[in-house]
Nucleic acid binder design. Structure first.
Lengths: 145, 145
DNA sequence: ACAATAAAAGACAAAAAACTCTTTTATTAT
DNA sequence: ATAATAAAAGAGTTTTTTGTCTTTTATTGT
């Protein structure tokens, strides 16, 4: 098990892929995206449908249609994608799975975990969807394998 | 989804519980443990059987039997429990789920994630199973709810 | 208007994780 | 030796996650 669900991993990879491919206009189809990140096509389609409904990614149907990001969306932090897919519990939940874990009622590792989660949150809030377009173009960063 | 699997969360809570209850000798039965941490009894039994086979927790059958920790085991780091249950991929895996993510072939968030994982590992290696016995006794830290 | 295209939606199927119940085995006390 | 106890083991079921296939709807170019 990773930090994120598989669904969320696909979502993040897809989001980076779409950003890179549509930074200069145009759209990418689901087949290209799925191929480009190595994910099951129809499964990814569901994920992107959901992100589209939530307004995180843009899409149009029909010929020359596909997914893309507008300027504003490219500035969105990764945290928004993660929260949309996996929920916010990843930033707040207890490390030992306790429902009512809090500073007043802490599990043994409450403090240490809080720090970790805060670091994750800081990181995901500081990274934007469009941030790696160039490095992906240059082949310095990868989304497959 | 948490950082750990549900199975692992139960394991960690159980381990803390057993440590506290057997710090001064004796054993705890599975019913007490499951009740004490709020987990399904038979499911937890499986988990502890596995930890027992791996030598992380000690157990004896029969009357006055149950689970316990010997002195040495109390000094074990939490990382050992986590690795036994969830595997080591939690310390090494790619944040975006890529198989071949590495410094030479990095995903976009490779560096940031590595730091996070290292912090998790440091934390889990520095905390021991028996470390919270006193605070649990005093009712300062909790394993339920 | 019509055909082609591509996302959206719906209904499943497979696999994995989480959970339950029953039987067996080992240990202890009498 | 025997009965009681408690973990170990086995054989399931349920739920969640992941993945597939088909049909529908919206858009575009001719």
């Amino acid at each position: 098990m990773g930090v994120f669900s598989k669904t969320c991993e696909y979502a993040l990879r897809a989001v980076f892929f779409i950003a890179q491919r549509t930074a200069n206009g145009g759209r990418v189809g689901i087949k290209d995206i799925a191929g480009g990140i190595g994910s099951p096509e129809h499964f990814l389609a569901k994920i992107l449908q959901d992100l589209s409904k939530r307004g995180i990614v843009q899409s149009v149907k029909g010929p020359n249609g596909g997914f893309y990001f507008d300027k504003k969306s490219l500035e969105r932090p990764l945290a928004d994608v993660v929260e949309a897919v996996d929920g916010s519990s990843i930033f707040t939940g207890c490390g030992l799975g306790l429902e009512e874990c809090s500073a007043a009622n802490p599990c043994p590792i409450h403090d240490e975990f809080m720090e970790l989660r805060n670091q994750l949150q800081r990181m995901l809030k500081s990274i934007t969807i469009g941030q790696f377009n160039e490095e992906l173009n240059l082949g310095i960063k990868f989304l497959k394998r």
